[in-house]
């Protein structure tokens, strides 16, 4: 976040001290057999942030989460939560972590109330008010049977179960999967509700870029087993730019520039999506002698798709060489 101009009248600013990170991942590498899932991932999540974890399916997001929660072992590297090694998290530490895995699993035979009782028995810091508030938010009553709930209601129940112990760290793995828009909105509101208390951290993975844009302070992007971005949402948007180059005749072949994500050539135009634009790259674009260069503002979703999608030249919707 930039703070280039200090305002004349100082509003009350509260600078949080640089505290030790809540989640610390160092050079994490994970193999399943000989298949590499995550390669040399290093990430630290500071206290009090809302951290979005992005990446295409199957790129290792859920695996990473499981590893730093101590539910799977890393092949190489180490992960820590609250400064403690993930592989030996004591129960007191687990009580401070709320984990909502993908799938929103509940024990179908329990009623909503019984689910609450079961969960509450494990957490001394259980807050029944929060539990009931979230339930009401999702229109759930105690007598409902968990097995009869819709996907969205189940998500609400799981969210209530996860939020009620007031965890310091909230880990959500694709929490909006399968939710209708109303449930999704409720989910976002609940996430923001959590941050009412300072020093609460949320680490969540998602495919819904618009939601990520709303709530995340920072994002980390996992692309091809490797962490490629770790920055604020704003920075990410700013660093990925698209340019439309118009030519009088057929456009020249796509130039080899570093950070080129996508290119699209048509009769008279060439559209280039570039990450980390530098003046040097700009001059290279100008050197192609186009009639005009027009910068295009991208939505976060478009930027993200270009970032993690297939590289190279595109013709309409498909990859591959132009057919002429």
């Amino acid at each position: 976040m930039e703070n280039s101009a200090k305002p004349n009248q100082q509003p009350e600013e509260k600078m949080s001290e640089p505290a030790s990170p809540v989640i610390q991942i160092d050079h994490l590498t994970k193999y399943y057999g000989t298949r590499e899932i995550v390669s040399d991932l290093s990430l630290s999540v500071p206290k009090g942030t809302i951290y979005g974890f992005l990446g295409r399916n199957g790129m290792g997001k859920t695996t990473t989460i499981r590893i730093f929660l101590g539910l799977e072992d890393p092949t190489r590297g180490s992960t820590k939560v609250f400064g403690l090694d993930s592989r030996s998290l004591p129960p007191e530490a687990r009580a401070r972590i709320g984990y909502l895995p993908e799938g929103h699993h509940v024990y179908g035979w329990m009623t909503v109330k019984e689910c609450g009782q079961f969960q509450a028995s494990y957490f001394p810091a259980w807050n029944q008010d929060i539990f009931e508030t979230v339930l009401t938010h999702f229109r759930l009553t105690s007598k409902m049977k968990a097995g009869h709930l819709s996907r969205g209601q189940r998500a609400g129940l799981c969210l209530a179960l996860t939020l009620a112990p007031e965890p310091e760290l909230l880990v959500l793995d694709d929490p909006a999967l399968g939710l209708d828009p109303v449930a999704r909105r409720s989910l976002l509101q609940s996430m923001l509700y959590v941050t009412r208390k300072a020093d609460r951290t949320i680490f969540f993975s998602s495919h819904l870029l618009s939601d990520v844009e709303r709530v995340a302070d920072r994002i980390a992007v996992l692309d091809g087993k490797v962490l490629r971005a770790d920055c604020s949402v704003e920075t990410f948007r700013r660093q990925i730019r698209q340019f439309i180059l118009k030519f009088r005749d057929a456009p020249p072949p796509t130039p080899e520039i570093p950070g080129l994500l996508e290119s699209f050539r048509s009769d008279r135009e060439m559209a280039l999506t570039v990450a980390n634009i530098t003046p040097e790259i700009e001059s290279r674009l100008e050197a192609l002698q186009p009639a005009s260069i027009e910068p295009v503002d991208l939505t976060l979703e478009d930027a993200f798709i270009s970032y993690v999608g297939e590289r190279g030249e595109k013709t309409f919707f498909m990859n591959g060489k132009e057919t002429k």
């Binding site: 703070n3 600013e13 509260k14 630290s44 500071p46 490629r228 604020s232 990450a275």
Partner: peptide, 15 residues
């Protein structure tokens, strides 16, 4: 070449 990394700054919040 497409890596985007940003150092974390301390968060300043308007209260």
């Amino acid at each position: 070449g497409i890596e985007i990394f940003e150092k974390k700054s301390s968060t300043a919040e308007l209260v």
